[in-house]
């Protein structure tokens, strides 16, 4: 699927069959058609990437400057040094990174498992209060969380007295708090997707003697892999960046997540350490990007390769 260079396309232009729509044929497209079909998409892509990334160039520039401010200067990359990245090693940055990865992975796995199960129930079973239940799940998440900082503290204080691992300063407790939000908008996302999987498949499997759990695990989940990947990613990113609840729950520095730690470096603008912060922010964006890069094949490759479209 190489992008045709102008020369090769021009050479091949004469023999191209206008009616052909197959993938293999596009290398012989005319330049104009290449542009209307694909080329403009590259233009959009470049523009979109520039739009998405240009403000972050500031961040990158600050992370490479030894002693700078975030937005004080429009002269980018005036001095370039890796000092800030090296200095991260003297902080607890990598501990925070490890904590964050553990918490975010656990939360996103838990969210996918619980959310998908709930979505399956809502999609496949008919029971009293189904519609209201679905709506209620979504609406509960809209509650303004302005007192969460007191409520969560009190809750974990009480829980911690009974079950120490669910008390303050426990990563498990934080994961549990995050999982409290597992049923919500993500359930809805999956619910919509589950509905697109034809019921005839379940029926057929059930006639063959499969139980509902076998249908769920062996048929449905495979077919909805794209949305599971999307939800996993959304949950991972949300957990990765969350610091309001994390800073209440995790009280000791060695337990902090990246968001809490990074925020601490700049929470007071006067004492802000932008160099360290931006270097940390650049590195902490990498796992998210890597995860997305990895999950893309599930997101876009899932259904088309599946058996549904037979």
């Amino acid at each position: 699927m190489a992008i045709p260079t102008p020369a090769t396309t021009a050479a091949a232009a004469g023999s191209s069959a206008p009616s052909s729509r197959t993938l293999t044929d596009h290398r012989r497209m005319r330049p104009r058609r290449w542009f209307t079909e694909l080329g403009w998409r590259h233009v959009v892509g470049v523009v979109a990437v520039v739009y998405a990334a240009f403000p972050l160039v500031y961040v990158l520039s600050a992370s490479l400057s030894e002693n700078g401010t975030l937005t004080g200067s429009n002269t980018l990359f005036a001095d370039v040094s890796g000092a800030n990245y090296a200095e991260l090693g003297t902080t607890m940055f990598w501990t925070w990174m490890a904590n964050t990865l553990v918490i975010a992975v656990a939360t996103s796995v838990g969210t996918v498992l619980m959310g998908a199960a709930a979505a399956y129930a809502f999609s496949r079973f008919r029971f009293a209060g189904r519609r209201i239940g679905l709506t209620a799940l979504l609406i509960v998440q809209m509650f303004p969380q302005m007192l969460a900082f007191v409520a969560i503290f009190l809750l974990l204080l009480g829980l911690g007295n009974v079950v120490p691992v669910l008390g303050l300063n426990s990563k498990i407790a934080l994961i549990a708090v995050y999982l409290g939000g597992a049923l919500g908008v993500n359930t809805f996302l999956m619910y919509g997707f589950f509905n697109t999987v034809p019921r005839e498949l379940d029926e057929a499997a059930k006639i063959d003697g499969a139980t509902h759990s076998q249908v769920y695990w062996t048929i449905i989940l495979r077919l909805v892999a794209p949305i599971l990947a999307v939800v996993a990613l959304l949950s991972f990113i949300a957990t990765f960046g969350e610091f309001i609840i994390a800073r209440i729950v995790l009280t000791s520095e060695s337990n902090w997540t990246l968001a809490v730690g990074l925020y601490g470096w700049v929470s007071s603008l006067r004492e802000a350490n932008w160099g360290l912060f931006t270097a940390g922010a650049v590195i902490s964006a990498l796992p998210v990007l890597a995860l997305f890069l990895y999950l893309q094949k599930y997101i876009v490759g899932g259904l088309t390769a599946g058996s549904v479209k037979g």
Partner: peptide
Amino acid sequence: LALKYILPGLGFLLVFQ
């Protein structure tokens, strides 16, 4: 049947949200 699938998430929701 439906609750078998919903309960785990619902439990967390009830306690923490």
